[in-house]
Amino acid sequence: MTAAQIFKALGDPVRLEIVKRLADGSAYTMNNLSKDLGISRQGARKQIQVLVSANVVFLKPIGRETLVTLDMSSLELARAFITSMENQWDQRLNALKNFVEK
């Protein structure tokens, strides 16, 4: 799993909304999660499949339902990458500020 794949998977408002719902730690079934997304249930399933392919979420069959769970390690990777890039820029911009203000 790479940060780049995760960024691509989340580069869509519906998929981002799905991940936001899962991010509060609640358990969702495929059916619950597909509601109120502004798209058809079939479309929602398709978007969830994209997230599964990118290892952002994983599916677990429970009886006749399918449970959707967030794979935290994937998101931590993407977030940590961006954070490290932001920190590097903060350091560089501070160096620039110190340089021109002296």
């Binding site: 790479t2 940060a3 780049a4 960024f7 990777l77 993407a78 990458f81 961006i82 490290s84 890039m85």
Partner: peptide, 14 residues
């Protein structure tokens, strides 16, 4: 442009 980065690059540099 981070989403266009090649596979593994982000992971590697991280």
């Amino acid at each position: 442009g981070f989403a266009t980065l090649p596979i593994n690059l982000a992971e590697k540099c991280f």
